[in-house]
Amino acid sequence: MFSYRHAFHAGNHADVLKHTVLIAALERLLEKDAPLTVIDTHAGAGLYRLDGDYAGTSGEAAQGVLRLLSPDADAAPSAPARKPPVPDEPAPALARYLELVRSFNRAGQARVYPGSPFIAQHLLREQDKLKLYELHPTDARTLDANVAQLEAGRQVAVLREDGFGSATKFLPPPSRRALVLTDPSYELKTDYARTAAFVAEALKRFATGVYAVWYPIIPRPEAHELPRRLKTLANKAGKPWLHATLTVKSSKIASTPDGQGKRPGLPASGMFLINPPFTLADQLRPALAQMAAWLAQDRHAGFTLEHGG
Rank of each mutant, 00 (worst) to 15 (best):
P257H: 03
R194I: 04
V21F: 02
P172F: 00
G115R: 02
D183M: 10
V21G: 02
T57R: 10
A91H: 09
G56M: 07
L171W: 01
A10W: 00
W241K: 11
P77Q: 09
P90G: 12
P87D: 07
Q149S: 12
R154W: 01
G59K: 02
H42A: 05
H9G: 00
D72Q: 14
N275W: 09
T182R: 00
V38M: 00
V16E: 00
L266H: 07
V147I: 10
A24W: 02
L179V: 02
H300A: 15
R5G: 01
Y211R: 10
G59M: 03
V147G: 00
S78Q: 15
V101Q: 08
F118H: 11
S58N: 05
E31G: 13
I253M: 09
T182S: 14
R177Q: 06
R125Y: 02
G52F: 05
T142N: 07
R299I: 10
R177D: 02
L47M: 12
L123Q: 03
A91E: 11
P286M: 06
E134H: 00
P277Y: 06
K239V: 04
A293T: 14
N146E: 14
L273Q: 11
R49D: 10
S103C: 10
M291K: 06
P277L: 08
S166K: 05
L284D: 04
H307R: 13
Q260G: 14
N146P: 03
L94F: 04
L159I: 11
N235W: 09
L203F: 12
K239Q: 15
P71T: 14
E306W: 00
G309Y: 05
E225C: 08
P216G: 09
L159P: 00
G59I: 02
G259H: 08
P71G: 14
A14W: 03
W294L: 14
P84H: 13
A120P: 02
L22T: 04
F303K: 01
A193Y: 02
G209P: 03
G259P: 07
L143M: 06
A281M: 09
P276W: 09
R111C: 11
R102M: 13
F303L: 00
G46V: 05
D162R: 04
Y215I: 08
E89F: 12
L123T: 05
R111K: 15
A212M: 14
